[in-house]
Amino acid sequence: MLSFICDVNLIIMNCLIVDDHEIARDTLIRLLKIDTSLKLIAACENAAEVYKNLAAHKVDLLFLDIEMPGVSGIELVKGLGEKRPLIIFVTSKKDYALEAFDLNVVDFITKPITPDRFLKAVNKAHEVYNLSNLFMGNSYDEFVFIRDAGVIRRIKMEDINYFEAQGDYVKIYMDEKLHAVHSSLKSIENKLPVKSFVRVHRSFIVNIGKIDSVEGNTLILHKRFVPVSDAYKASLNKRMQIL
């Protein structure tokens, strides 16, 4: 019997504030105090301080200015790689919005930041964070919990056809439904029951029991095509027990 207790409001997120202006940092420090689920690790002035804090602490969320001397906020995010914290961009200009959202950040807020707008961004961060933790925290063979439009849903492992990595998210394909979780494919792979799931490509993990057919380097699962890369072909063939 599975049991799961989740009070999303009690999950504490460790935060870094990054801005080269003292008043901007102080404003964010003030706003952080509104939400008791946010714990300030440090307020950084530049990228070097960010790297130092990321190396020393577990950081879940960055409030990051974009225009800073030296390394910009966007360059900083690009350099952090897959295991980066969640990002909320905080900037004075809207010019960077498109580029910022391409980096799969949680939100993009413009100064001056009102408490309402700040809380809205933080709630979004909580949703993404909880969703990611929910998935990561349950290495059950039968079920996984995900957050879907504000509701925590249990989905059966056997209903999952395959996973596809897209940026900072992993899409979960089922027969009629599609979900997305903020995570890396590698992290999800580590939590999946090995008897049912196999990596077939850098960006895909499939449920072996859901493979309808194999045509060359392509799998067909519920009328969808999934590529198989040469690097994973041998291990897939081994797992498929072809007669």
């Binding site: 801005d19 008043i23 404003t27 225009e67 004075s92 200009k93 001056p112």
Partner: peptide
């Protein structure tokens, strides 16, 4: 230009936008 951009935080604090 960089300074004017940076000054936005100072300016916004006192409602000068």
């Amino acid at each position: 230009k960089r300074l004017v951009h940076k000054m936005r935080s100072t300016i916004y604090l006192m409602g000068l936008r």
